[in-house]
Design a protein around this nucleic acid. Structure first.
Lengths: 203, 203
DNA sequence: CACATAAATGCATACTGTGCAATATTTGCT
DNA sequence: AGCAAATATTGCACAGTATGCATTTATGTG
């Protein structure tokens, strides 16, 4: 079976990530060389690059993945959109629960090293893309931009909510999703305030 | 006056950017070394890094800047939010008009090199941050997340609209803003569809 | 013109990331 | 257990990225 090897591989990936986080928190991102991280993880410098393409990837590890196939129901649902998005996110977080310790360390690193913030944002991109694809299938091809924007919005709202979750031990996953809903609802309210209708002039 | 020197400096920065875009479009992003770009721009390899901190920055040049000070009116306006955001963006595009040729080349590069797409996204971040600050001042400190999300949404919608503008010579800046409004309005409509009210459970 | 300032350059150097080949380890199978 | 195939780890060489520092060159000012 591949299973055993795969488990070891994932464990090593996690080990390297934690080593990277430890070293970076100890001496700072700039000073943390890949060699130092490899030493901390007790692997050869070369092996480091067998697991992660670069230092940043090692810090982030692999972000949770939204399974496109497991979201077939989403495309044809006639329930309210926001509720369905929340169900998708719940599904994803259930499949691949976040590790509060790791997330907390990542947050510390990003806080100390603001130039890494965009990187952290980027790590959401795979999820954003998957969600965007599902939304596109649901909304239709003439709503490509809207699908992308709502996907962005949803993943960023999730990111915000996860930030709160990291900072508060008592918070449950349900609360995270509640926060996401709250944000999306408020955004909707802000956007429609005072709007009559959209007239298109060109394009 | 510094003014003359400054103009030369900005011109050199533009020259280097165009050289970078030419080289990258000719031989691809991966194969385009900083040395080759410096040669194309007829400067020494070392000088390249006096102008841009890295290759990516040279390709993007400096993205348009949203002047926080010029947006004081925004914070206290009682007009509809979306309309005010559009006025801000119009102001910004008026101050610092985009170059269609450059944008078109950037688009070609990003199309050929998908791994650069996040980079392009990042280049919007400064604008997003400025807009987010203005929104925060307007919405109040208890709407921090909403301010960030609406800022994201607006700049991404702008990015989408600019994509269309690049592809269509006849499109004017007004049309770009019209597209932004259209997207924001539609997002609002999608988000509020079927929503009764937000009940908060925790946090 | 001569001086002060800023820009451009050359050189040395640390670090990143990749390809390749050699070695070691694990796995499936008998 | 023992063998062969697959997979993982490692060392080495090397191209490229980026920075610091000292030096040279160009430019604007009086």
């Amino acid at each position: 079976m591949n299973n055993l090897r795969d488990r070891r591989r994932r464990q090593t990936a996690r080990d390297i990530q934690q080593a990277a986080l430890r070293v970076v928190l100890r001496i700072g991102y700039g000073a943390a060389t890949t060699d130092a991280i490899a030493a901390e993880a007790q692997i050869s410098p070369r092996t480091f690059f067998n697991y992660y393409p670069n230092k940043q990837a090692a810090i982030l590890g692999q972000p949770p993945k939204l399974d496109r196939d497991a979201g077939q129901w989403f495309e044809t649902s006639d329930q309210p959109l926001v509720g369905d998005i929340l169900r998708l996110l719940a599904q994803m977080l259930g499949d691949d629960p976040l590790d509060r310790t790791i997330m907390s360390m990542i947050k510390q690193v990003v806080d100390r090293t603001p130039e890494l913030l965009p990187l952290f944002r980027m790590s959401l991109d795979e999820m954003t893309q998957a969600l965007s694809d599902l939304l596109l299938a649901r909304l239709g091809p003439d709503r490509t931009w809207e699908a992308m924007l709502i996907a962005e919005l949803s993943t960023h709202a999730l990111s915000n909510a996860v930030h709160s979750w990291v900072a508060d031990d008592r918070m449950t996953v349900d609360c995270v999703l509640g926060l996401v809903r709250q944000q999306l609802d408020r955004i909707g309210a802000l956007l429609v305030a005072g709007v009559k209708s959209t007239e298109r002039s060109c394009g």
